[in-house]
Design a protein around this nucleic acid. Structure first.
Length: 299
DNA sequence: CCATGACCCTGTAAGC
DNA sequence: TGCTTACAGGGTCATG
């Protein structure tokens, strides 16, 4: 989610208020087929607002439709402003400038836009094609199948200890699995759950319900965890997300939160905890790697 | 209700 | 060096 928010912040100044003058769709599908008549439905539209819900980007268009874009694991948008492209020279509106350098093998969608910062080319690249795009009506967006069962955002006031207490009460599933559940917290991914649990000193394998008192009230540990999740997410967004293999910002630069990982991807390395010389372990939970310190993270 | 595994697809890195 | 295998940030569905 910090990666998606970073993309949103990169695109917004260029795209909000921009008109889409031309659309080049280079293949029929990503993870799913593009919507029918996708290119023609976008052409001529104005982008009113660029939003985000969980890990979805939401392009609100001027005809009461919303373009939903999910980056999957390897999707990225690149912006090339005509004004900063030495070679674009006399590129005409509606013509496609070929971005310099990089191969365009996985450039699947190219938009020519005229926006507040001038004419530009926006390119969607996705090597693994785990991303997808959909078009839907702006009315009833919250009831859209992709959003209807989403939980609260990990930023903002909705994520509170009482809320988590209510949602985790009675759950015997592992704490880590419960926090990854998008119907509880929408947008919290594997990296940030691992990091938050380490910082909060909580075991990923503990039953989720152990953070809830009998009366359904949060324990002190749950209060800590809630604050920690929010802090980790905010730090990661401020750092421009984490760049492992695939995540690239809209200007081609990399996020740098990965340099602050305490446990993620550190299997076999010494735990970063003060005075702890244990080794970071990796286990598999719900099909995903969990990294944690068995000594610092308690049940 | 819960856990696990499979699937979508490609690229990278580690291991032999 | 070259081949093979494991693994990757996610979402959804089937199965036990």
């Amino acid at each position: 989610m910090p990666e998606v928010e970073t993309v949103r912040r990169g695109l917004a100044p260029v795209l909000e208020g921009a008109q889409i003058n031309a659309v080049e769709q280079r293949r029929p599908d990503l993870r799913f087929p593009f919507p029918t008549d996708f290119a023609s439905r976008l052409t001529g539209r104005r982008v009113l607002r660029l939003g985000r819900r969980a890990k979805y980007l939401l392009f609100t268009l001027d005809d009461d439709t919303v373009l939903i874009s999910h980056l999957g694991m390897s999707g990225s948008f690149r912006i090339l402003l005509d004004s900063e492209d030495d070679e674009a020279g006399g590129t005409m509106p509606g013509a496609f400038a070929q971005p310099r350098g990089k191969s365009s093998l996985h450039d699947h969608l190219v938009l020519r836009i005229e926006g507040p910062l001038g004419p530009a080319t926006i390119t969607y690249n996705d090597p693994r094609r785990f991303g997808f795009m959909e078009l839907t009506c702006v009315d009833g967006l919250d009831a859209h199948p992709r959003f209807a069962s989403l939980g609260v955002e990990p930023t903002g006031n909705e994520l509170s200890a009482p809320y988590l207490a209510q949602r985790l009460a009675g759950k015997s599933s592992p704490l880590k699995t419960a926090l990854m559940d998008q119907s509880i917290i929408a947008g919290l991914g594997n990296i940030y759950v691992c990091e938050a649990l380490w910082r909060a000193g909580l075991s990923p394998t503990a039953p989720a319900k152990r953070l809830v008192r009998k009366a359904g009230r949060p324990t002190a540990r749950l209060e800590t965890l809630t604050a920690t999740i929010r802090a980790v997410i905010h730090e990661a967004i401020a750092a421009g997300g984490s760049s492992l293999r695939d995540h690239i910002r809209t200007d081609g630069s990399l996020g740098y939160f990965q340099h602050r990982f305490s446990v993620y991807g550190r299997e076999g390395e010494p735990c970063a905890g003060a005075g702890c010389n244990n080794t970071v372990r990796r286990i598999s939970q719900a099909g995903r790697s969990t990294f944690y310190c068995p000594r610092c993270q308690k049940h």
